[in-house]
Design a protein around this nucleic acid. Sequence first.
DNA 1: TTATTATTGCAACAAAGTCGCATTAATAAA
DNA 2: TTTATTAATGCGACTTTGTTGCAATAATAA
Lengths: 124, 124
Amino acid sequence: MKRRNTQPKKEILSALKSAHSALSHEMIQSEMKDQMDRATIYRVLNRFCEDGLVHRIVGDDGKQYFALCLQCEEKKHHHNHFHFRCLDCGTVECLDKEIQISLPAGYVPEHFNGLITGHCRRCS
Amino acid sequence: MKRRNTQPKKEILSALKSAHSALSHEMIQSEMKDQMDRATIYRVLNRFCEDGLVHRIVGDDGKQYFALCLQCEEKKHHHNHFHFRCLDCGTVECLDKEIQISLPAGYVPEHFNGLITGHCRRCS
DNA sequence: TTATTATTGCAACAAAGTCGCATTAATAAA
DNA sequence: TTTATTAATGCGACTTTGTTGCAATAATAA
């Protein structure tokens, strides 16, 4: 099914672009001028993930955050990096460095989710 | 306030001991013969965390998992290791290797949460 | 301009986790 | 051993996050 270029989609994408960090559904909703439905936001974000436009980070607060795939090429995605969540301002950022983890024999990795919480430069 | 040695506490601790992996609230509840309240389980687990008996892992499913602090000494806790969650059987295990991550200047780390999902040895 | 169907908005729902409060039961004190 | 103290339990209500069904709407194709 072909994707359509709708208003919510455009606004959410632009919010993700201008934020240089990962956003939760809540952060996105509060930035929207014309209030859009919660379910819509989730659906748009999930579609972005499917399309490889965005990657999903699950914070140690149990919430989902979404960030643009900046360093990701068309086919090859690099998501083996850590994220940093600031306990003060709530910002979730990507840390550049890629991580290589070797698993015990017989383990097949599928997804990587590395998160460090603490205090970011602006808040510490 | 001094801790008391209650029935729920004993049962939950023994469940964590016999499972050689991290358990979610749900897994614990289903292992209990005499059904205990959900809130009680959460409270016991949170107390275990406060007391440094157990560490909390947040899965990329957004759920909390709890595992005994085996390699942790009295004062010094080592939680900088990865966890592996199997998408098939749901098991959450600790991977032994410790990780050292260097943060950008000005960032103060507080917590570490590294998780890999995939298929474990038994399911792959 | 009309037809097709992806997407939205709404409402309902499920699951995870927390909290207040009365009751229960470990522990300490008598 | 009995009584008093208060930590912990169980219940219910609640919040938050995220999903889903369905009718209505609006992008796109015809």
